[in-house]
Structures are given as C-alpha cells and as structure tokens.
C-alpha cells in the first residue's frame, strides 16, 4: 500500500499541492481526477522522486519514500509511467524493457519479460524493432511494460489515455485493472478523462487546485452530479 500524508509542493510562489493525503491499496486501481492544473502530474512526479516536496511524506508499505532519489524509489518498487508514452525511441523494444529492471538478475528479468509479453503480446512480436516505429498504443504498452520490468509494488500511471483512440484506452486500462488485481499491485492512475478512469478504478480521488476535494468509491464519484459539474466539467 502506498500512503500519502499531507504532501505539500510549492513551485516558487505557486502552491501546486496543498496538504494532500490519500491511500493507494494493493490490488486496486485508485484514480486521481481533476481539471488541468489541479496538481495531478505534480503528485505523480513527487511520488516518483522527480520533485521534492516542501512538506509531508509518502510511504510504501510503511517505508518512507519521499526525500529519496528517483532511482532509489524505482528500485524500491514504485514505477512511474510519465505522461506522453515515455519510452526511449532510439532503443529497441527489448532494450526498452531490459532498461526497466537493469539492476535485477538475468533470470528475474527474463521471467518478468515473459510476463510482460504475455500481457502485451504485440511487444513480443516487435521485440527487435526500434521503439519509434511503434504506434501510439503500442508505445504506451511498452512504457507500461518497461515500468513492470522492475516488479513494482506500486504503479503510477500519468495520463495513459493522452492522444490515444478511446477503444485502445479502454483496452489498456482493462489490462491495468486485471494486472492490479492479479498481481496485487497498487495502481495510482491520473486521468483528465474522468469517465474512462472511474470506469476501471476502485476508488476515486478528486483533486482541485492542489487540494483533495473528495475521496470515495469510483462509482459514487462518477454518479455525483454536482461534483461532476463543479470540478470535472461534464
């Protein structure tokens, strides 16, 4: 379980996150939704160690991760898939995957890689091709696959739907849900596309201007008329 306690992040004079607390239980998908500039990406980048918080902590299974280096947090089992299909286009599919768990033993890596190929068969077919020859959906799968290569206990997905066809988004998110439940991974999903996100999520967190407005079961939030109008804009 990933637990976030009163996390506060300032960009100079601008407060991006104010006192954010939330929990991401293992085996579940928790969706953070909110409008542009709500602080969603900042939350993800802070959890991954790319941004230092001004106050508050985040801990994974009781171990504090805030204040550590991004590479150490990754090795502790928190894998972020940043916004915009973060693969290394100059490397092949297989090299991108290898990258995800470079510090692990060869046997462990081979086993995880097989799991990833089982989950995303298209990556197995394209393993020797360069990442920049893949389609958008394939690259998103590769980015998630790369994150899975470190055998994460917590997966952070930042806007996976960005620029993808709705059908593909649904497919990928269904896979992510299956993954969370079957491998007992805590998944934190950040989405602007609230409808899609809440459809697969167990819990929903509404973020507005850096503060948590509401936490509750995904269904409940999806059907909350006022909330939708006020913060989600539909």
């Amino acid at each position: 379980m990933l637990a976030v306690e009163s996390l506060t992040v300032d960009y100079g004079p601008v407060r991006a996150l104010a006192n954010v607390s939330l929990q991401v239980p293992a085996g579940e998908v928790t969706a953070v939704i909110g409008a542009n500039g709500a602080g969603k990406s900042t939350l993800m980048r802070t959890l991954a160690g790319l941004v230092r918080p001004n106050a508050g902590t985040a801990s994974l299974e009781g171990q504090v991760i805030t204040g550590r280096k991004a590479e150490d947090i990754a090795r502790m089992g928190v894998a972020l898939v940043p916004e915009g299909r973060s693969t290394v286009p100059e490397l092949t599919v297989e090299e991108n995957l290898r990258l995800g768990g470079l510090w692990r033993s060869r046997a462990e890596r081979a086993a995880t890689q097989q799991e990833v190929f089982d989950l995303f068969p298209i990556l197995g077919e394209r393993r020797t091709m360069r990442a920049d020859t893949l389609s958008g959906g394939e690259r998103q799968q590769l980015a998630i696959g790369r994150a899975l290569m470190c055998d994460p206990t917590c997966l952070l997905l930042d806007e996976p739907s960005l620029g993808l066809a709705p059908l593909i988004v649904t497919q990928i998110l269904e896979l992510v849900k299956k993954l969370a439940e079957e491998s007992n991974i805590a998944v934190l999903l950040v989405e602007q596309n609230a409808v899609t996100a809440l459809r697969v999520a167990h819990t929903g967190v509404v973020l507005n201007l850096g503060t948590v407005v509401m936490v509750g079961p995904a269904q409940e939030i999806a059907s909350h008329e006022e909330l939708r109008h006020a913060y989600l804009g539909y």
Binding site: A48, G49, L50, K69, A70, E71, D72, A74, R75, A79, L80, P82, S86, T87, V88, P89, E90, L91, E95, R98, L99, G100, G101, L102, W103, R146, A147, M149, C150
Partner: peptide
C-alpha cells in the same frame, strides 16, 4: 552490456533512465 544500455538510455532520455532505477 548493461552499462552500455544504461549509458545509451541516459544519453537519450535521462528521465526515463532515472525512473527505471538507473543511477544517472
């Protein structure tokens, strides 16, 4: 080698490299 892969990944995309646990 793994070191070579780490070096190439770091050169092309340091952020992804760090998120992959590479000591950039």
């Amino acid at each position: 080698t793994n070191l070579g892969l780490a070096m190439r990944a770091t050169a092309f995309n340091p952020e992804v490299a760090r998120l992959s646990g590479i000591r950039v």
